[in-house]
Structures are given as C-alpha cells and as structure tokens.
C-alpha cells in the first residue's frame, strides 16, 4: 500500500462520523428482538410448557394484584358476534408515557355449539403468543427504561358467518421501527374443523405454485405502475434472495366479497414502509379446487 493510501486510511477513519447513541440503541434492540420474529422456529414443547407455566405465574401473582384503573376486564359485557361463536376481550390495558406505549386488547373465543376443542386451541395459542410478546416487552423496558418502546396487541373478527369464522390477532412491537405480526385462526363451522391454507384445496391443486406465481405477477405490476412500491421478488439483484413462494400455511382470509386474500407480515416480502402486504387471488384460479 502506498503512502497516500496509508495516510488516507488513517485520516478517513479518524474523521468518519459515529452512529448516534439513540440510533445505536434502537438498532441493538431490533437485533435482539429478532428471536421473536414469526419466521423463527417455534420453541420446543418443553420450553413452551415452561413459558406457559411461567406466564400463568406472572399473570396470577404479578399482573392481577397490580391492576389499576387503566386495566379493564370486559368479562361482563360479552358482545354477541355471529351466530355461534362469541369473541370478547379478556384483558385490556392502555398506558402511555414519554417513552412507552401499551395498547393491549386480548381476545377470548367462546362457542355455544360445540367446537370446544377448536376454541380451546385458539384461546391457548392466543394466550401463549400474546404473553410471550408482553414478557419480551416488559423485559426490554426494564433493561432499557429510557428507550422508546411500544406494544400493541389487538384483534378483529374478520369473518363470522354460518359457514366460516376467522379471527385475526395483531401483535405490533415497536423498538425503533415497528414489527407487525398477524396471526389468523379459521374455523370451518360446517365441518367443525380448524383450518389452515393447506387444508382448503384438493391434493391435485398445487396452490403454492399457482398463488405464488399470481402474487409475483401482482408485485411486478404494482412496481411498474408505482415506482414508490418495492417488493423483494426472487431473484433479488444483489442478494439472490426475495419472495420465491408462499408458505404452505401462509396467512390468509376471505374478504367481504368472499375472495381469498393472501397476507404477509411486515418485512416478509417488502421493506418496512410497505407495511403488511396483502394480495387478492382471482377466484377463477381456485374456485374449482376446493376440498
């Protein structure tokens, strides 16, 4: 290396800007929160059991005795939604201060018409998922009380007809930038079954390939029409990564027009500013292939 290069290296390194402290904290928080991202492997059953037991202890001994006016239990006023299945808020908390916000609304599902096994599964899974997010949030704010953090948990009954029930639970964690995770629960009321995308269509219909190709087309079309839109479509120019195909049990729901909508979490197929992308799949692609 010549003398000029040596001198430039030394001068440039000493003149380079430093990452601001608050940005450093946010980036660090984001990296440390990666283990709760939805694409991670689930905990082992043993670990999950320990976590659930721990969560139950936390709720019984710490959360319940410390309830204040911000916490409201909505056990009394159960709204009636749909014909057979009711959804109500079992735990609510709204709290905001200079550095933190918590808007938590956790659903509980009830049925008057059987479906106990399916309903129990949903309630248990919702409890586990939301408690993990709350534990993670509580731990982070106790470690870093001055970091800007937030947690929002809410839900929506997307569909509740005679045939079908869909509940959507949102977990939105904010540490610097926000990470949104949706979880959908579907019950086919006529069959009395919990349903995932892989159970809807006949075995001969390769829905993963058909829907993935359709979604990639829609992504390309949207990017051509509007250059502010960006999706990571495989193969991405530099990283050889990007959206290749949907997961066999990709999030989905049926919209008000009874069309299939494939849903992605934030950062799953696009940069964060694109939010949680959704794609309506044309009915003619799948209507003859229902199970």
């Amino acid at each position: 290396m010549n003398k000029i290069d040596k001198m430039l290296k030394s001068r440039i390194k000493s003149a380079a800007p430093e990452m601001p402290e608050d940005m450093s904290v946010r980036i660090n928080e984001m990296v440390n929160s990666l283990d709760v991202q939805p694409y991670k492997k689930r905990n082992s059953p043993f670990k999950t059991a320990v976590l659930v037991a721990f969560a139950a202890v936390v709720i019984t001994f710490f959360i319940l005795p410390n309830v204040n006016e911000n916490i409201a239990y909505a056990m009394q006023d159960i709204p009636f939604i749909g014909e057979y299945i009711k959804v109500f808020s079992i735990y609510k908390k709204d709290n905001e201060d200079e550095y933190h916000f918590e808007h938590i609304d956790i659903p509980q599902v009830e049925s008057e018409s059987g479906l106990e096994e399916q309903i129990d599964y949903i309630n248990k899974d919702v409890k586990e998922l939301t408690q993990m997010a709350i534990d993670e949030y509580e731990k982070t704010i106790s470690d870093l009380p001055d970091a800007h953090m937030g947690l929002e948990i809410n839900y929506e009954v997307v569909t509740n007809t005679d045939e079908w029930f869909t509940l959507r639970v949102l977990i939105y964690q904010v540490a610097g930038s926000g990470s949104s995770q949706y979880k959908y629960y579907h019950i086919d009321k006529q069959r009395g079954e919990l349903v995932s995308l892989s159970q809807i269509f006949t075995d001969s219909f390769n829905y993963v390939s058909v829907f993935s190709a359709e979604i990639k087309n829609q992504m390309q079309e949207q990017m051509l029409e509007d250059d502010k839109k960006i999706y990571w479509v495989y193969p991405d120019d530099n990283t050889c990564s990007g959206f290749y195909q949907i997961k066999p049990d990709q999030n989905f729901y049926f919209n008000e027009n009874n069309e299939l909508v494939i849903a992605f979490d934030k950062y799953e197929v696009a940069p964060g500013y694109m939010g949680c992308p959704e794609f309506v799949i044309p009915r003619e692609l799948y209507e003859s292939s229902f199970n």
Binding site: M19, R26, I27, S241, Y267, G272
Partner: peptide
C-alpha cells in the same frame, strides 16, 4: 459492524433517518 454500516449508509443516503431504515432493513434481510 454497526458503525461501519452507519458510515456506509449515511455516505450513500446523506440522511440519518434513511440510513437507519436501510440498516434495519438490511439486518432483517
């Protein structure tokens, strides 16, 4: 590598907020 990422991102984007977005997106990816 955090500070190096910051120097690179801010030198390309000339804007701290954009640099932070780019770093977060890159780390997730």
């Amino acid at each position: 590598l955090a500070n190096g990422m910051y120097v690179l991102a801010v030198s390309i984007l000339k804007n701290e907020a954009d640099a932070e977005d780019a770093i977060q997106n890159a780390l997730l990816l």
